[in-house]
Amino acid sequence: MRILSLAGRRLAASLPSLLIILIGVFLLLQLAPGDTVDALLAQMGGGGDAATTAELRRFYGLDVSVPVQLGNYLWRLVRLDLGFSAIYGKPVSTVILERLPATLLLMSASLSFAFFFGLLFGVIAARRVNGWQDSVISTLGLLFYATPSFWFGLMAIVLFSVHLQWLPAGGMESIGEGFTGFTRVMDIASHFVLPTLTLGLIFLAIYLRIMRASMLEVLTLDFVRTARAKGLDETRIITRHVLRNAMLPMVTLIGLQAGTMLGGSVVVESVFSLPGLGRLAYEAVVQRDLNTLLGIVFISALLVIAVNFLVDLLYARLDPRIAREGS
């Protein structure tokens, strides 16, 4: 319970940030050339007489002053109404909800991939510090960190989809095959292999470096010496004693980088034409669908805050001292 109240307090503390983001981006978008009505008219092939334009502006609530519009917008957000997307012809919340599953799937898959292998490689590198395994892993980490994700994705498509023809080059599932049940799950999974690797690679690089450093740090602490003195074997010391403590910085990083990962999914979803939130953001920018863009900003910020909330809970579980000190 104490953990929950602590994390809840952190959650409440993120509300001002959310408000700053919304007001800031709303005002920023006021500077954009053209509004929703202009975009809509442009899509209908231009034209539209003054009366229709004015009518449309009133319909979208654009005929009042900016502060009033902002107030209206925030009040609608409180009621979870994100407005109407003129480009897609449906409420923004519907558009976003349609796109959310692909992004959530991609993010959680990449995060698990990066976390698991980062942990594994970090531990191996730290166990054999300055040995050849360490050199290979550290070099790979540096290379992965410097690789532009979209380029890695393109090269993976060339190798695995075009030449070897092992995996599909894009999309979320095979269209028109009518797969159901298990076949469909496997089909979607095969479509997510390359995007997951592409998005996860840079985080894998970061996690393995942090894990290695943190393992080396924890291995020098007194309780490890005590465990060794008790005669525990090395594997047991690593898995039961060191790992739990060494994982803390990695868990912190998940929270810090949730935003970066969401940003990275914009590019990765474009490379693999996945119908996700990131691709929606890109389309909204290209089509000047500012209402949708603002909605995505709001949802992304909520996602980042939610991830941080979960990280806080996890953190307090891993290190019980945190919950005790916090109360």
Binding site: V25, L28, T260, L262, G263, A281, V285, V297, S300, A301
Partner: peptide
């Protein structure tokens, strides 16, 4: 606030 908003998304907003 800046850290909560994915920076690539903010970049897209600024460029648009």
């Amino acid at each position: 606030a800046f850290q909560t908003l994915p920076n690539f998304l903010l970049l897209l907003v600024l460029v648009s």
